[in-house]
Amino acid sequence: MDTLAFILTQCVNAFSQAALLFFLGCGLTLIFGIMRIVNFAHGTIYMAGAYLGYTSVRWLGGFVAALMVAPIVVGVLGVLFELFILRRLYGRDGNAFLMVTFGLALVLGDAVQVVWGAPPLQVPPPAALAGIAFFLDEPFPVYRLFLIGFGTVMAIGMWQFLERTRLGLLIRATSQNPDMVHALGTDVRVVRSGVFGIGCGLAALGGVLAAPLVTASLGMSLAAVVDAFVIVIIGGMGSFLGSLIGALIVAFVQVFGNYYLPEAALAFMYLVMLTVLVVRPGGLLGKEE
């Protein structure tokens, strides 16, 4: 394998990994930005997305259907969780959220095990994306190319949503001063519920997309929550662009680290995070609070 082909292969791996991580980190950072809560259940929600994707594919027979159904179901559940549980906690100190979202992670994790069982479940990629594409005589899994394309479209879509739509404007304003938004006539409680739902839905979408690559397994949740936290710490809590950059950095470190030094890949990821924290304590694009 020549160098160019090698680099190309690794970049496809890294960019497709970044697409998955972006959904994870973007949801977490949106939720943090607007609610100032650290959602410990984020990895478990990602995992639940993967399992729901598995079931949607089996019942509805299509991957596209799974891509829509799983995030919507999880998003609605997220809204309900915010409405009935988190909403009671605003105004309390952050530990309350920590305990409650940690509790959600435990309960949801067990619920997934009860419903789907412990063994990992294979989710085949859709037939149209299952093949291999050749470029420079090198094979590339079409599914990874699809992830890169889909991730790019969704990142641009999210960015445009935040910049151009009224709800996006209210989300940005609420992350800066919720009381002022409320006093200007918008019920910030609705914005909060909505953002929690969107954040959970994005994590679930990432889970569905990850399933064909890694199978749906109970182990994904811990790895995912760690990755998500590293991404938003690197990129800056609450920064959308930061979550995108964080996802790219973490993906490249993981893919190249796993190739050259598999034993130290995880340590290397933490090293990058620590370096960022030393140089910019609030993250690359975050604000120090």
Binding site: R172, Q176, N177, M180, A183, T186, D187
Partner: peptide, 24 residues
């Protein structure tokens, strides 16, 4: 009443310290 309802009823608020959204 909650703030958004007061605002919609026709009360506008210019707070002490302006409280402009800094990043908008």
């Amino acid at each position: 009443w909650a703030p958004h309802r007061v605002a919609r009823a026709g009360v506008a608020y210019v707070p002490e310290g302006r409280l402009i959204f800094p990043d908008l």
